[in-house]
Simulated scan of single mutants.
Amino acid sequence: MEHGGDYRQWPFLTPEEFELVCAFFDQKYVKAELGPTRKVFKIRLRRTLTTGSSYIEILRLLQLPGENDDLSLAFEKLNGGHDGPGVEIDMLAAEDADQEALRPQLQNQHIEAMDNGALPQYSLHSHQPYVTYEVHLHPTYNLPTLWFTLHDLPMGEPTFDLESVYRYLVPPEYKSRLRAIGPTGGISAAPHPVTDIPAFFIHPCQTKEALQCFDCKMDDYLIIWLGLVGGCVGLWVPPEMAA
């Protein structure tokens, strides 16, 4: 398969190719007719300050919000309340702008963002657990890697805990298979590639074999890849993005 002649070495990606597939994926999200889905599912194309490399950030509420829920309002205000084109840069000025865009016009809502590219920290008053997924290019495997972290779980439930991941993210049909695989090829933990804070990720060692069964151009690369990787931790791309 030539895969449209888009790739230097299918299914691996160079940093330049990864930049392109991220941009295509973000563009699909911006253009898709998602309706209410945008209240609980948000995608942003981001860039690290230290290396200048792109990555994809996906935020998803773990339960349907109330009509006036603080966190759902914060989701709606991402990118100034609309999903126009643009790249989010992990620099101080950009994070300050994010804080203003994310701040609902409700009392006592406080949102912070770290200058080093960490995700905005939503107020605990929202009472809405959510998950952040990130797609980074693995420097050794030269393949996308899915990282994820849980946030604002109910009192007493740890966010960096494998059992919490299985309870909140892993669908029942995947649980026994993932536990049998073990760390390599399943859910692993390591310092986050941007923040260096412990996070979970799906090991990319089996991604090559799965992708080789497909023939896709760059604008569909992350759609196909997430269809293979994301479901085991509760991440599905809205079908409108694949249209």
Rank of each mutant, 00 (worst) to 15 (best):
V229N: 06
G186P: 14
G4E: 05
P204A: 07
Q109F: 12
I89S: 08
V165W: 05
F214Y: 14
I111M: 11
D70G: 07
M91R: 14
V165T: 03
D220P: 02
C216A: 08
L61I: 04
T48D: 14
P139M: 11
K28S: 13
L226M: 15
L106A: 13
Q63M: 06
D26A: 14
L61R: 01
F160M: 09
I43V: 15
Q212E: 14
Q128P: 00
V135R: 04
I202P: 05
Q105N: 12
L71P: 00
F200Q: 00
G66R: 07
D70P: 11
T14D: 04
V229K: 13
L222M: 07
D70Y: 11
E2D: 10
H110Y: 13
R167G: 01
D90S: 15
T140W: 03
F160W: 05
H125R: 13
G231M: 05
Y141L: 11
V40Y: 10
L124K: 09
I187V: 14
E2R: 14
T37G: 00
D196H: 13
G81T: 10
F148Y: 04
S72Y: 06
E16A: 14
L150P: 06
P139G: 07
D83N: 14
T37A: 11
A32G: 12
C22D: 06
K175P: 01
T159Q: 04
A23Q: 13
M91G: 15
Q105K: 13
R60F: 01
M218N: 01
F75D: 02
F12E: 05
K42G: 04
C22S: 11
F75H: 04
F200G: 01
R46Q: 10
A94E: 14
M218A: 06
A210V: 04
D215P: 00
Y29M: 03
L92W: 10
P183T: 15
G84F: 07
L34F: 05
I58K: 03
A180N: 10
V21A: 02
Y55P: 06
H110F: 13
V194Q: 02
E33V: 12
M218S: 03
D220F: 07
K31M: 04
A210G: 00
C22Q: 05
G84I: 04
V131P: 10
E209M: 08
A118Y: 08
Y29V: 02
F75Y: 09
L124S: 14
F201A: 07
L146H: 08
I223V: 15
Q109L: 08
V30L: 06
T159K: 01
A190D: 12
T51N: 08
Q128S: 13
Y221W: 09
L150G: 00
N108W: 09
I202F: 05
S54T: 06
C232Q: 15
P204I: 11
S53G: 03
A189N: 13
D90I: 03
Q63E: 09
R8Q: 12
T145V: 13
Y221E: 06
L228E: 08
G185W: 00
H127R: 14
T14Y: 08
M241F: 03
I181H: 09
D115S: 12
D90A: 15
D83S: 12
A101H: 12
E67W: 02
L169A: 03
C216V: 15
H138G: 11
H3V: 10
S164C: 02
L49N: 10
D26I: 01
P172N: 08
L64Y: 04
E88L: 13
T207P: 00
E88I: 10
R177C: 09
